[in-house]
Design a protein around this nucleic acid. Sequence first.
DNA 1: GGCTCGGCTGAATACATCAG
DNA 2: CTGATGTATTCAGCCGAGCC
Length: 456
Amino acid sequence: MAGMAVYDPRKEGEDRFEGFTFSSLEEKGRLQYFFHCPASKLPVRDVLNLHRQGNKTEPHIEIGAENYQNRCYYPNNILPHLKSAERYLFLFTMCEDPIHRYYKRKVIVGYIEKSGSVYSPSAGERPDRYAVKGDVRIYSFDDAIPIDEPPLNYSRYTRTHLVCEDDTRAILGRFSGRKDITEACVREIQRLDEQNPKASKTCRVLRGQDCPFQRTECRRWNLPRKAMLLRVGIDKGNGGVLAPLFENGSFEYIPIPETEESAEERTYETTIGRNGVPLSNYLPKRMSQMKLHFDPEFETPSYGDMPSKKAYLKKLNHGDLLVFYAGLTPYGHTGAQEGLYIIGYFTVDEVVDFSDLTPKERKVRAVRLSNNAHLRRTESNDETIIVTGKPGLSRLLDRAILISAPRQAKNGRMYHAVSEEIENRLGISGSIQRCMPPRFVEGKESFENLLRMLNL
DNA sequence: GGCTCGGCTGAATACATCAG
DNA sequence: CTGATGTATTCAGCCGAGCC
């Protein structure tokens, strides 16, 4: 009975393992409290130390553990749980989201289904401990279960509590069919942790230590990533010409003209390209005085759009790639082909949907993102969606990367389709002449090929 | 076999402490 | 003062030894 499914760098058989139970478990459990991070609407631990109780590492949902890096109610709750036949460690917290109906209420937001333990020897300030480990499920505050209401009716001052079989059934019943948001929570923890200095990060690896789960089970280090390809810049329908591709593979990124009222003052004539001459040099005369719709812009960096692409952009997560391609045509040489080329990318920091924001938040964001063409427009920005890139991991390329090949349609006209080589490497295909629908590069192999193409 | 009692265990709770 | 934590204490329930 004891000693099953235990990871331990030391030898097994020590009497400290005696009594841990991982088999023949019963359908019951107990509560375990954690601090909710007030900076998040998701039920994640207080990574940022906003409760002044330390940068919380537990529950360590990345590997489905509690007490992995630090002790928390260790002798009173975790050790008895490890010894007991209880299957579930129910995680509950005080909701700190001021606009949620459960604000300042203690609610159960998920559980760990016990299947083993992890021993961690003491290190510095961190005493040695056993963690509970198992599959974890986390649910949103909307789906959370208040502990002081029927059917539970526990005291609102509860710290630890056993959960009998009836209550366990009731809790699992309430959660069944609801969406497990563990992955979103891991991404949120990752995002929040970036604000912490190295010594305060809630991941051992980021603090400079080894973690035996980094390459295996840790969801933080094994999050699926994807890329979205989006056509941008001037094209034949939007100006009548394509941007220039020079003989050495460099190019100009030429934004489309601004058609709305805007605070933008730059024109094609006043904007000097990377090649040293005004952008208007590459365009018909009639366009010289037109203002630019500089989107994407690589300074902040940011990319904005209106509702049409919203659903696609909202699929992007922190750490995903937003890859921009444009139509380019050889300029002053014949050593390359006219076609579609990757010209730059963002490593996504945030996707901000202005319709989710309060008017006050909108104002704050609009100031911070004032480099973006959509926020320079005079009209209201309530429906705008903005993707911000991580500075340093987002750039306009020096050399464009060809991704298309000409193909003949049934009616005899030529169009740009994904070249066979790119089809094999990135797993996308068909016409990419139009920006809609945007193509996604998903799957580990395709994504890694893309990273290599971008030298990432 | 059945009953008593004492010791052990673990859940609940009281206490001390600390920080906003 | 409030709310949270770690630790100490209490107390109820269980189990087994020992006795009739």
